[in-house]
Design a protein around this nucleic acid. Structure first.
Lengths: 136, 136
DNA sequence: CTACCAACTCAAGTACACTTGAAGTCAAGA
DNA sequence: TCTTGACTTCAAGTGTACTTGAGTTGGTAG
């Protein structure tokens, strides 16, 4: 299993070394072994970082990810903690999914407006999407 | 058209008055008329706030929203500015859509794991989703 | 008229997710 | 041996999106 330096991991994951040190500091990554004071990672950390990045984009905070990535796999931690979190996050994912799909369609339609009649087109587009509904 | 005070707008939109003042300060909401120094809104601001909240959830920054909500409707502004922004944002929406769908399925499957065999179940689930692929 | 409440401004503070800078350490190559 | 360069820690700084607090003002109720 290849040994990776912090800068190799960072580069492969598209992060800066400082981000990896930060993740370790807040307990998101478990401290790696050190050789001469320097962190040595094995490749499996890249999988974890991939999950972190996907989840982060999907609206997870690093604190939430710490619970999911550490507590879930820790038999000693109470299962209700992350169980509730996942339940809540699932609902958030559904809302977010709707929002993203709405925004995507809205943007696509605005792109189709021609610059001349732009203002009206956007308003019509908005109405068509019922994005501009009265928030009663 | 009903006149709304800042706290009425805030309450209906699920925001704090301070957020509305802040939006005005950064140019996201155009200043409303004042009566005795106090802001008076008409109901249409709620539609705008609904769009802002949806877009924000979908990953738009307030700076981007200022461009889209103000510049797009301003004939004087160069169309390339927001045109490029929308193009870029559309790509982001597609990536985000994939990520959210992946996270959603992952969370659903983790919920189905029973607490006993949790660790293995999560690993299998992750592999099944190819979330834990080598980030080469 | 006074008291009060809700609004106002402006500066400073907060949370999150990092980054940057200063000062020191370690292993390898010339 | 000396230098180089990538690493280390720790404290402080950054950007985004607000919130909070202090002190002030304006319209209404008693």
């Amino acid at each position: 299993m290849a040994e990776l330096s912090i800068s190799e991991v960072a580069q492969r994951a598209g992060l800066r070394p400082s981000a990896l040190r930060y993740y370790e500091e807040i307990g998101l990554l478990t401290p790696t072994r050190r050789i001469g004071g320097r962190r040595h990672y094995d490749e499996s950390v890249l999988e974890k970082l991939a999950v972190i990045q996907t989840a982060q984009q999907a609206g997870f905070t690093l604190a939430e990810l710490r619970i999911l990535l550490n507590d879930v796999l820790d038999a000693a931690s109470p299962s209700t903690r992350w169980h509730d979190l996942i339940q809540r996050k699932l609902q958030e994912m559904n809302t977010l999914l709707q929002n993203v799909q709405n925004m995507k369609r809205l943007l696509e339609d605005i792109m189709d407006c021609d610059d001349a009649s732009l203002a009206e087109c956007i308003i019509l587009t908005g109405q068509r999407h019922q994005l501009f509904h009265s928030a009663q």
